[in-house]
Design a protein around this nucleic acid. Structure first.
Length: 201
DNA sequence: AAGAAGATTCGCT
DNA sequence: GCGAATCTTCTTA
């Protein structure tokens, strides 16, 4: 299977639309050791004006990537332990992003296992911190254009998406009631509780 | 200059 | 279920 990159022209210029659009698409990571590919099965939207978003208080050196055009990687470090990968999703200087929370492993599974240890395949990239670890994502990828083949990029969906569910987002306290988490219902690589993954907001 | 909070995960109880 | 691990960034004094 040969993945084809998604051009910027194909991307929605809107955070909620982007979060939904990305479900089922491929995330491809190319490194000297080889290629890792995962199918995106869970996302969260952090649109402009959302107090839980890192862009909420305006552009800084740290959150600059989210103020670029759609399709840029925003990578940040949290809890002293984990990296997280987002895709910018609004017009330039606006500020918005979509957090990639889980992948269904497709290719390069041995490379993911090497970084994640002995866990079931479905758990390799189940959760945003695990996703970053499995895909070898670090701060050097912050700002990368994901709309062309490079170290980290987006590619077309390999198959039709199953039913998409919607729920509240995980692990935040501000704007906690907003239904801004999207996932492929029934996919075993989706994180979160059974109750959350049943709802369809 | 110091402190607290944070888009999590893992291991133990 | 709870707490630790461990660090960056922003806020407040």
């Amino acid at each position: 299977m040969k993945p084809r990159a998604i051009s910027r022209a194909e991307l929605p210029v809107d955070t909620m639309a982007m979060a939904r659009f990305l479900i089922g698409k491929l995330l491809v990571r190319d490194t000297p050791e080889g290629r890792r590919t995962g199918r995106i099965v869970e996302t969260e939207a952090y649109p402009p004006g959302d107090a839980s978003g890192h862009h909420f208080r305006g552009e800084t050196a740290a959150n600059r990537s989210m103020f670029l055009e759609p399709g840029r990687a925003y990578v940040y470090f949290i809890y002293g332990v984990h990296f997280m990968l987002n895709v910018s999703s609004e017009p330039p200087r606006t500020g918005g992003g979509v957090l990639l929370r889980a992948l269904e492993p497709v290719d390069g599974i041995e490379l993911m296992q090497a970084r994640r240890g002995p866990v079931r395949d479905r758990d390799l990239a189940r959760g945003p911190g695990r996703l970053a670890q499995a895909m070898a994502i670090g701060p050097e990828l912050n700002g990368t254009d994901m709309c062309q083949e490079g170290p980290i990029w987006l590619a077309e969906a390999p198959k039709p998406v199953d039913e998409i569910g919607v729920s509240i987002r995980i692990g935040i306290t501000k704007e906690a009631h907003q239904l801004r988490r999207y996932f492929e219902r029934g996919n075993p690589s989706v994180s979160g509780s059974t109750a959350l993954n049943r709802s369809d907001g």
